Computed example of a mutant assay.
Amino acid sequence: MRNLIKRLHWMDYLMLFVLVAATAAIVVRVGGVLNYDWRWEKIPNYIFRYKESEERWVANLLVQGLVATVRISIYASILALILGVILGVARCSANLTIRMLARTYLEFLRNVPPVVVIFIFFFFLSEQLIVALNMESWARGIARQENNAVWTFLFGDMRRFPALISGVIVLALFESAFVGEIVRAGIQSIDRGQREAARSIGMSWFQEMRFIVLPQALRKVLPPLANQFISLVKDSSLVSLISVPDLTFKTVELVASTRLIFEAWLTAAAFYFVICFGLSLLFRRLENK
């Protein structure tokens, strides 16, 4: 901390002063012009609440939504990475049909608003898949069981499992288009001579990709993949539109029931900032190593 303070320039102090002054001006204007009654003392109760029947603190609306957002982001990022690598490899395929199918998928998703994509995939794909697999009845059966602690830890309330899966699927399908283009760029950045050398010693196409191309490509695309994962965390707020109980959905519920408009949304923004900023620091350390 002392080293950080020593590196600060007078311009940094000036910018900090301007930021604090702007924040104070906004708070005063909201309280004065809009005649808004700030009630920050009520927010902690919607983060954690004391459950008297069990005599312990339990997560309330905002933390429940935060945990759901983290779950959705992790599962969607894993699925998006798998699909994105497949799409990126397909974009570099020698087969024209495979290459064009992958490009059609990528170009469609990258040039259509995400809200439209989420509604399209929700109503025409994930919802139909959930009904076809009878997933709702299966999830409710697990929710009635007594020993479902593992399922609850992994997926939360199993009664909302279909909604969680819908959010993960639609978010992963949308984000996989961007991951696919990143992976394609990484593959095409590998020197052609290395691929020709792999073929000259008798490697198959699969061995060439597995041992030569992908290890180098994935190392190069780590920074843009990290940025895409951070964007995925922020884009996860869109799944609240299909009634997935994430942080944004829970914040809307809180605002509707308490009218804590500014307090609730500022708290939600702080939660998103902490997650995304923490991830940016983590990925920066990975890049340096």
Rank of each mutant, 00 (worst) to 15 (best):
Tyr75Leu: 12
Pro114Glu: 13
Val67Ser: 03
Ile72Cys: 07
Cys276Ile: 07
Ala68Glu: 04
Phe283Tyr: 14
Arg29Tyr: 15
Tyr13Gly: 12
Ser176Val: 00
Ser231Glu: 06
Arg160Thr: 10
Asp37Pro: 05
Ile86Cys: 10
Ala269Ile: 13
Lys6Pro: 01
Val239Tyr: 08
Trp10Met: 14
Ser137Glu: 13
Cys92Thr: 14
Phe174Tyr: 07
Glu196Trp: 07
Pro114Thr: 10
Val274Pro: 06
Tyr272Gln: 09
Ile120Arg: 00
Gln207Gly: 10
Asp246Cys: 07
Phe283Ser: 06
Asn3Met: 13
Thr258Val: 11
Asn288Leu: 08
Leu281Ile: 08
Tyr75Lys: 00
Leu101Ile: 09
Thr69Val: 08
Pro223Leu: 10
Met15Cys: 13
Glu208His: 00
Asn111Lys: 08
Met135Asn: 03
Arg103Ala: 12
Leu96Ser: 12
Leu286Trp: 14
Trp138Val: 13
Ile43Leu: 10
Gln228Glu: 00
Asn3Cys: 10
Arg99Gly: 11
Val115Phe: 09
Trp151Thr: 05
Glu287Asn: 02
Pro245Gly: 04
Val117Gln: 06
Trp138Phe: 13
Asn147Cys: 06
Ala68Gly: 01
Val33Lys: 15
Leu14His: 06
Leu225Val: 11
Ala90Lys: 06
Ile230Leu: 10
Met15His: 13
Phe277Ile: 03
Arg159Met: 05
Asn134Cys: 04
Ser243Leu: 12
Ile43Cys: 01
Ala177Thr: 02
Val20Gly: 09
Val63Asp: 00
Leu281Pro: 01
Thr97Lys: 06
Val63Cys: 00
Ala68Leu: 02
Thr258Ile: 08
Val252Trp: 01
Leu66Gln: 00
Val33Phe: 15
Ser53Ile: 14
Ser77Ala: 15
Ser236Asp: 06
Arg103Asp: 11
Lys289Gln: 11
Leu222Trp: 04
Ser176Lys: 00
Arg39Ala: 13
Arg284Thr: 07
Phe277Ala: 13
Pro162Leu: 01
Tyr272Leu: 08
Lys220His: 07
Ile242His: 05
Ala59Tyr: 01
Phe283Thr: 01
Gln188Glu: 15
Cys92Trp: 03
Ile118His: 00
Pro245Tyr: 07
Ile230Tyr: 05
Ala149His: 14
Leu164Gly: 03
Glu52Lys: 14
Leu125Tyr: 12
Cys276His: 06
Glu175Lys: 00
Asn227Pro: 02
Asn60Leu: 00
Asn227Gln: 12
Leu173Asp: 01
Thr251Leu: 09
